[in-house]
């Protein structure tokens, strides 16, 4: 079966992609780029870096910009999936959804309307076990947005010490960032042909919601 992966460039969509590639032919990546960081459904990524990641993966990328409004976001998702069906013949969608029934319900309904299989290989996974698997599988991951938790995580690499720190925050923050506590960027994973190197980046935002805006990255 040919599938597409709903791709934000972070740890979850990359792990879902890796798992999908072990069973199916991944025909393309699809990315929704919210115009605002307030989107409840989609990750707010460094747009140009997703293009760089797609190059590193040697996979076609279909990008659609969308507003943070739910109805329009879902219309954008439907459009981008229609393109994936038409141009690449995909029969299924793979997502990195973990626990949000709000997100899962919307993805499942769109897939149903388009007669697509829907796969969520990280669904209900223990958040710390995801971080551990990402590390064990040789991913290089950095934190590109931190909101309401320790700001020193911004720009840091995911390692065992960071996982321990996130596990300790468990009582008040979701260790996988499912509550918007943080967003990540994958610089390297087993399917990348080259690694991403950040050449120029700037920290933007407030003390409580900071983002590492990558201005330039390169494949090395």
């Amino acid at each position: 079966m040919k599938v597409c992966v709903l791709y934000s460039g972070g740890k979850d969509s990359n792990l879902a992609l890796l798992k999908a590639s072990e069973e199916f032919e991944v025909a393309c990546l699809v990315s929704l780029m919210p115009e605002s960081a307030e989107s409840e459904i989609f990750h707010y990524p460094n747009v140009e870096l997703v293009e760089l990641q797609a190059k590193a993966l040697n996979l076609p990328l279909i990008v659609e910009r969308c507003s943070s409004d739910e109805r329009r976001s879902m219309e954008a998702l439907e459009r981008v999936l229609r393109t994936a069906i038409k141009e690449f013949g995909v029969e299924g969608v793979v997502t990195g959804a973990i626990r949000s029934t709000y997100q899962a319900t919307r993805f499942q309904r769109v897939c149903d309307r388009l007669d697509l299989w829907c796969f969520n290989p990280l669904w209900l996974r223990d958040e710390i076990s995801i971080l551990e698997e990402v590390l064990a599988r040789g991913f290089e991951v950095i934190f590109v947005r931190v909101s309401g938790i320790d700001r020193s995580l911004l720009g840091k690499r995911l390692d065992e010490e960071v996982i321990r720190a996130l596990a300790e925050m468990r009582n008040y923050a979701n260790p996988a960032g499912e509550g918007g506590e943080y967003e990540t960027l994958v610089l390297k994973m087993p399917l990348f042909r080259k690694k991403i190197e950040i050449i120029d980046a700037e920290v933007v935002g407030s003390e409580f919601d900071s983002m590492l805006l990558v201005k330039r990255g390169e494949l090395v």
Binding site: N120, W123, L124, D126
Partner: peptide
Amino acid sequence: KYGLSEEEFVRPIAE
């Protein structure tokens, strides 16, 4: 039918 679905529907029950 597919192994990838087992991650979503079987693993959580086993856990």
